[in-house]
Design a binder for these strands. Structure first.
Ligand SMILES: [Zn+2]
Ligand SMILES: [Zn+2]
Ligand SMILES: [Zn+2]
Ligand SMILES: [Zn+2]
Lengths: 158, 158
DNA sequence: ATAAACCTTAGAGTTAAATCTAAGGTCAAG
DNA sequence: CTTGACCTTAGATTTAACTCTAAGGTTTAT
């Protein structure tokens, strides 16, 4: 039997988190000491590890609640049900990745367009791109820093 | 001059959102009508579009506040400052993508390991993977669905 | 016996970006 | 002159997953 702090340390979470999981029905200690301290069994610890593993692959706590209830009642569920949950999650994650990739490409384009030098930002391509609607398409400045290093040739979007 | 609802519709946000931006110092209408209605100028509208463009590339509202203050005072900032912000954001986004990719790979592995059939989940590889610490490494079941389609050969991690 | 480290509870606070509610004022059309 | 669409405000609620606070009880070691 572990006290809350012991289990927390073992699994690298805060004791608060275990109380939170209890309040939300994910994990209750199977005993209390005479003085009211939570006492977790090895089974409880395993359940916690299940939760943390599911969290590590991206499930939310309410999805994990569902997974736990399936896990405790496996014979009444089909592989299809379980795989369905994973596949929905997978689709969510892929969607999120796609969205972030969109951000990434836009930010990269902005970054590439700016010299990043110590010169005044008065003609900074990044600010100009945000001011106007024009997407940045090439990696040069409108302003001239007096260095040949920065080309001013720019093929704007055809 | 646009009233709040007009500008909101034009830019496809809710009027609430404009009030929210005002409360948080991102965008205030440059006038009020006699009766107290907000009146936005074309300049205000442009500022809103700046905000929305910055949002579209992944900046948070507080980052946008910073960008706006730079934009209004460009000569006191360097390209380095602006590019720095973009690059920090880019790094954040890439970090998030990496994390989600981790989720994606794990979920894909789980999904691949499960037949997804109508059979009982009693030996579902997904649940087994979450119960035990073993990462799923191959795409077969421990249980046998009586179909030769599902191989039982599985090279577990060496 | 007393201090440190641990535990208990209920409930509030955090973060971001809105979104909603209530109670009321304004404006154009018919 | 009334309906309906629109506007005003302050403040509460939402979502997720904690995290913290206050006020107190327990255990363990010295
Ligand atoms: Zn520059
Ligand atoms: Zn620049
Ligand atoms: Zn199966
Ligand atoms: Zn399965």
């Amino acid at each position: 039997m572990y006290r809350i702090g012991e289990l927390a340390k073992q699994c690298e979470v805060k004791a608060d988190t275990l109380r939170f999981y209890e309040k939300h029905g994910l994990l209750s200690p199977s005993m209390r000491s005479d003085s009211g301290y939570r006492l977790y069994s090895e089974q409880d610890a395993e359940r916690l590890r299940f939760i943390l593993r599911a969290k590590a692959v991206g499930f939310t706590l309410s999805e994990i609640t569902e997974l736990l209830s399936i896990d405790l009642d496996k014979s009444n569920w089909a592989c299809a049900d379980v795989k369905g949950m994973v596949d929905i999650k997978l689709a969510n994650v892929e969607e999120k990745i796609a969205e972030l990739n969109h951000f990434r490409v836009s930010l990269q384009r902005l970054s590439d367009a700016c010299c990043g030098g110590p010169e005044s930002a008065e003609h900074c391509s990044i600010l100009e791109a945000l001011e106007s609607n024009v997407e940045v398409k090439c990696e040069n400045h409108s302003h001239d820093h007096g260095e040949t290093e920065y080309k001013t040739s720019c093929k704007l979007k055809g």
